[in-house]
């Protein structure tokens, strides 16, 4: 069970959070101009590393802020945790 240091609320169990997936995938600024490939890259083809991963977590049962978290997907060691919108 992860212990995630929320910048607002402090160390909290993972059960208070919702996972939001890969933070490395950026939404095309003008989707209408994106090719099918570029659009479906964004939709379906995400980073899936065994190791360091930048990802979104939502403090659902706390401050309801989205966090951008660095986490090793193999060891679950956490790196920087910051607010997605400072």
């Amino acid at each position: 069970m992860l212990l995630i240091p929320c910048p607002f609320c402090g160390d909290r169990d993972e059960t208070e959070f919702a996972y939001g997936g890969d933070a490395g995938t950026e939404r095309p600024a003008d989707p209408g101009a994106a090719t099918d490939e570029a659009w479906t890259d964004y939709l379906c083809f995400h980073d899936n590393p065994k190791g360091p991963h930048r990802e979104f977590w939502f403090h659902r049962d706390g401050c309801r802020r989205w966090l951008t978290v660095e986490r090793d997907t193999h060891t679950h060691e956490l790196g920087a945790v910051r607010l997605s919108r400072p």
């Binding site: 939001g20 933070a23 939404r27 979104f56 939502f58 659902r60 309801r64 989205w66 997605s84 919108r85």
Partner: peptide, 13 residues
């Protein structure tokens, strides 16, 4: 609700 908060905080901050 979570969807809207995600969009506001990560896609269109």
């Amino acid at each position: 609700m979570q969807h809207m908060e995600f969009l506001l905080q990560t896609v269109w901050p």
